[in-house]
């Protein structure tokens, strides 16, 4: 994730907006929202695969943030704070829906399902350099929720395994194992779709 100590361009502007927001300035709230809305909403959407839920969760994340903005002291980056809060909002939502945030399976053994699939082994189905965003996001949406959470947090959002373990409440080994399986599953999904497309044409 973003290094809290590393100053980014625009930090001074954002600090000014945060101070104005603390005083109840409507424009400052909106400017902060405009700056971060895409990242927060995309996170919510990837983790829920549902636009209505993602919008509700985006709203909830920003409301929680703005209610607490008076306590923000700037020791950490605002974006880091917001994104961690957003992740918590989404995970809370998934837990309420009784969806697995992460698989209970703790093993790091690679199961049979994860061994290389000979039926998709043709060289012309190699993914290298040819995944577009739409294909990938459809495949991510098709992941089981437990795999999806870890994949989104690590590969999309850039959290480290130790951070994910803390956020999600699993072991570091489990996070690594789930990520590997998620990528393997995505590979299968992408190759399967490519195979279907090749057969149709």
């Amino acid at each position: 994730m973003t290094d809290p100590q590393q100053k980014q361009p625009g930090d001074a502007l954002e600090a000014g907006l945060i101070e104005k927001a603390k005083q109840g300035d409507a424009q400052a709230f909106q400017a902060l929202y405009d700056k971060h809305k895409r990242r927060v909403y995309s996170l919510c959407l990837r983790m829920t695969s549902n636009t209505a839920e993602a919008e509700d969760l985006t709203q909830e994340a920003f409301l929680q943030l703005y209610r607490k903005i008076g306590t923000f002291r700037g020791e950490s980056a605002f974006s880091t704070w917001l994104h961690r809060l957003s992740v918590n909002v989404v995970l809370m939502h998934l837990r309420k829906k009784s969806l697995p945030v992460v698989s209970l399976e703790e093993t790091t053994q690679v199961g049979e399902e994860d061994t290389p699939k000979k039926d998709f082994g043709a060289e012309d189905l190699a993914l290298a350099g040819s995944i577009d965003r739409l294909q990938l996001q459809k495949a991510v949406d098709d992941l089981p929720p437990g795999y999806r959470t870890i994949f989104v947090l690590h590969d999309v959002e850039g959290y480290e395994h130790n951070e994910i373990a803390t956020i999600v409440g699993c072991s570091i080994g489990n996070s690594k194992s789930q990520l590997h399986k998620a990528r393997m599953k995505l590979r299968d999904l992408l190759r399967m779709k490519r195979s279907e497309k090749a057969q149709k044409s």
């Binding site: 809305k37 996170l43 993914l127």
Partner: peptide
């Protein structure tokens, strides 16, 4: 090929970070 594919997936994932607008 497997390792190459997994790396491509990991790299492409970053493009989903702020892909959508509420």
């Amino acid at each position: 090929g497997l390792v190459a594919d997994l790396l491509v997936i990991a790299c492409a994932a970053g493009e989903l970070r702020a892909a959508h607008e509420p």
